[in-house]
């Protein structure tokens, strides 16, 4: 099966700081691929480059055969990005926010309506969607944004720290939602410094530290390779 996303030798420099030192990885269709690493490892930079927010200093990114530098609009059409600290327009009702976002992706009103209906089902926010987003708790906002990211059935969802700042119940619900997407063929690229969460969610993971991918594989193969009980220990041994 051809990979949905291919990253080759990706480099990013901010002035004198080299944030990514030539990382490479591939994401297959319907796969959840996790980038794990500590704060400052380069996870967010990688996701922001693939989401077209940042331009790479060097390297190649292809998505469904399209090159990032030549066709960034193709990436925007088929990729949904959920930033770590994303918010919704505070003065907009949840339902209006979904409508607003759906219209960018839908070819017509009927399709937009379908997207919104799907988002209503994904979010599970029910009647609260009629309230302004400014009144939502962090968990509710996250569910709304996750529903926004997935309502268009993107080829790939990029989720940066999807459960960051959420309580246990909300985190569990969000994880279940993410697991559910892949059953519909959506590929997921996610990042987290919560290695246990990534282990639970991901089909394959890449261990990233200081702009370099140390190792990659399924959680099981990595645990066996490093003779570790979980990914946290795998990561510690890989860094050593």
């Amino acid at each position: 099966m051809a990979p949905v996303l291919e990253v080759e030798g990706l480099k990013k420099r901010y002035g004198s700081l080299e944030a990514l030192k030539g990382i490479s990885f591939k994401v297959e269709e319907g796969e959840i691929f996790g980038l794990i690493g500590p704060n400052g490892a380069g996870k967010t930079t990688t996701l922001r480059i693939i989401s077209t927010l940042l331009t790479p200093t060097d390297g190649r990114v292809t998505f469904l055969g399209f090159d990032l530098k030549k066709n960034p609009e193709k990436f925007r059409e088929r990729i949904s990005y959920l930033p770590e600290e994303a918010g919704a327009y505070r003065n907009m009702k949840g339902i209006d926010y979904l409508n607003f976002m759906a219209k960018f992706y839908a070819p017509d009103e009927a399709e937009a309506k379908k997207y919104v209906e799907r988002a209503i089902a994904i979010s599970g926010l029910g009647e609260r969607l009629k309230d302004k987003a400014g009144t939502y708790s962090k968990g509710m906002t996250r569910k709304l944004l996750l529903a926004r990211a997935l309502m268009t059935k993107p080829a790939m969802a990029i989720l940066d720290e999807p459960t960051s700042g959420l309580d246990v119940i909300n985190s569990l619900e969000v994880r279940e939602m993410i697991k559910g997407f892949t059953r519909e063929g959506v590929s997921v690229l996610l990042s987290s410094h919560n290695m246990l969460e990534v282990e639970f969610l991901s089909d394959r993971v890449a261990l990233i530290d200081r702009g370099v991918i140390l190792d990659a594989g399924t959680p099981q193969t990595l645990k066996e390779k490093y003779q570790a009980a979980n990914l946290e220990i795998v990561f510690r041994r890989a860094v050593q």
Partner: peptide, 14 residues
């Protein structure tokens, strides 16, 4: 401030 800019910049619009 509302952390909506990043999302807006990734939607398919120039």
């Amino acid at each position: 401030q509302n952390k909506t800019l990043e999302t807006l910049l990734t939607v398919p619009v120039s």
